[in-house]
Design a protein around this nucleic acid. Sequence first.
DNA 1: AAGTCGCC
DNA 2: TCTG
Length: 213
Amino acid sequence: MLDLFGDEAPWVEPLAEGAVILRRRARQQGAALLASIAQIAAQHPFQHLITPGGYRMSVAMTNCGDLGWSSGRRGYHYSDVDSFNGRRWPAMPQGFLLLAQQAAQEAGFTDFQPDACLINRYEPGARLSLHQDKDEKDLRQPIVSVSLGLPAQFQFGGFARGDGVQRLLLEHGDVVVWGGPSRLRFHGILPLKPGEHPLAGPYRYNLTFRRAR
DNA sequence: AAGTCGCC
DNA sequence: TCTG
């Protein structure tokens, strides 16, 4: 939809049972969210983690909240410290927490209590291949994913890697929530197309809120 | 506003 | 441990 003014009201798009896109839901908070990301990254720099297979991830990551997601040769895990500097992750900003809880509520998930916020930074060409979020202890809690900056193609699939996927363009301020019967659906991001965003420059950022423990 | 497959 |  043409949006010359950037002030259209959010709208809701169902994705699957237990999954929804809240279009532009976080748009008016975009600048504040990006400012918080910059503050966090000043102390906990974005890093390109290594997968268990030994590959450098094209997406750069940092975290806030009690627990942070990480990857290394030995596998994936949540940790309360940043391996870069051995210090605890910064607290989740209140604006992050409120947004995540409100978005979850609007998607039908009450009492979402995220303790982990993974912050992903995509540069042109960066991707996240199809995967499941399944390292969390309580799979009754949903995933809340906030898109900022450059647009990207999101893949939302089924329960096996080879199942068909929906492709959805996620733009600045879009919030995807999935849980319940959709909690273990495969999802990913196709290689980011180069561009320039007025607030985020040449990047796409994603906040992924989870209850990890 | 790229889709799909096979390889390790 | 294929979120490459």
